[in-house]
Write a protein that binds this DNA or RNA. Structure first.
Lengths: 249, 249
DNA sequence: TAGGTTCACCTCATATTGAGTAAGACTCGG
DNA sequence: CCGAGTCTTACTCAATATGAGGTGAACCTA
């Protein structure tokens, strides 16, 4: 059988007993705290419970579906530049039978890093969406607790060996702001002097704009130099998390 | 319409035009070369082309589907212990429209590390499967070239910060054998003295059995001490690849 | 037995890190 | 306007990790 006649007699519906969705772990930093975008579910199952934003994949690539869902829930429009600075990467797929009580659903999870975005405005799909500190994001619907935990662990690791912390800041930032991103994601303070030395010593991590902030910090301190993201895609050597005591056994 | 209302009263057979498969990048080391398990496709599309082993997901978890496909293609039986030492992890999902000419197929790719396994025996499903040096694994069906490349990059990275190199060896191994695993996966020789020092200095990487090999190496040299895998799940500090010259920009 | 190979150590120079100190520049509250 | 407190930036110093190379003895094959 040649390929043409094979395709002609092929019935896709024969195999399709599985639905494919995308779920998005969208992270941002608000007031120095790492936050995740959640939606309130309106219908069964898990009605009233919070969940990660997501939905069915249409005739589009998987990452396009994730970006579309993110745009719909935040009320921001892709293509208008608002989501250009969002970093999006695939996290993994979750497809255990029974993870959705109605049918077999395989969900492709995505991880997004966003600069501080506005609170989703009412009046749209996004009305049910809001940012929640990751510490308070528990008891989510489906297996979204697991997906969120995996996303957080991935994010923490990514900050070690990639310059993606800059995806959480504005286009220009100070070393202190960058340090606060690391502190929020890792959940611990960093030694300011060593961090400063390290960031400037890794080639391609940041580049100076030659400018400084117009004012000092809110609580004092001198004007800080401004930087923008460099062209490195990997940090070498990496910026390792402070002593995780013993390595995971 | 949100996910919930969409799913209510949903008949998957009626609408779903998407199928879910698993594909497996199974790696092993044969004669000092990193090899991947490929199958020869017998049916359209891509009949006669080589492809990664894989197939449709049944009523089972995704990782179980991957292990089942691996077992079917190698002729080994899960549960009989032969596949117990195989490390299996999810690599990622590939779902671009058009990647399969028949219909929308989302494939969840898995990465497997196996000790040197026998050549798949004829007479079974596995008759069409064989190990191929990764250097010669090109022009695969579907987007399997991309999946393989992603798997190789993941494997190379995993060796840096996890003790998974031991998944390529037998239960007991010498430091030299372990070094050859790294050399095969990374594609470059390592400094024997420094490697030896490093492996023994990382807590939990390997533990001594107190035994030595019965004979020296085939080409000379003293009997080597034997080790088994330790209980660490992460290497700290990591065992970094030799200078990748400039970091990836 | 000769020659080459490998293992298990070792040294030494250089990088990198964690911790602490310090000089100024700046803010805010009084 | 003053003083207390904050923050940036830069420095030192010790401990640790890495890259390169060397040594002696065990062991193989020829």
């Amino acid at each position: 059988m040649d390929e043409t006649s094979f395709l002609a007699g092929y019935d896709p519906r024969k195999y399709a007993a599985v639905a494919v969705t995308v779920d998005v772990v969208a992270l941002t930093i608000r007031d120095g705290r790492l936050c995740v975008l959640l939606v309130e579910r309106g219908a069964q199952p898990f009605a009233g419970r919070r969940a990660l934003p997501g939905g069915f994949v249409k005739e589009e690539p998987l990452n396009a579906a994730a970006l579309r869902e993110l745009a719909e829930e935040t009320g921001l429009t892709p293509g208008a530049g608002e989501l250009d600075r969002v970093h999006l990467e695939q996290l993994g797929s979750y497809g255990d039978p029974g993870r959705d009580p109605r049918m077999r659903v395989v969900s492709v999870a995505y991880l997004a890093f966003a600069p501080s975005l506005p609170e989703p405005t009412a009046g749209s799909d996004a009305a049910r969406a809001y940012w929640v500190s990751v510490d308070e994001a528990k008891d989510l619907a489906f297996d979204h607790d697991t997906i969120l935990a995996d996303g957080l662990e991935r994010a923490r690791g990514k900050l070690e060996y990639t310059p993606l912390a800059t995806a959480f800041t504005g286009p220009e930032f100070t070393i202190g702001e960058l340090r606060q991103v690391y502190a929020a994601v890792w959940g611990e303070e960093l030694h300011a002097g060593n961090f400063h030395r390290k960031v400037l010593s890794v080639p391609g991590f940041v580049e100076s704009t030659g400018e400084t902030t117009a004012r000092g910090g809110e609580r004092g301190g001198p004007k800080a130099k401004l930087y923008r993201a460099g062209d490195a895609r990997l940090l070498h050597p990496a910026l390792l998390r402070p002593t995780r005591e013993e390595p995971v056994r």
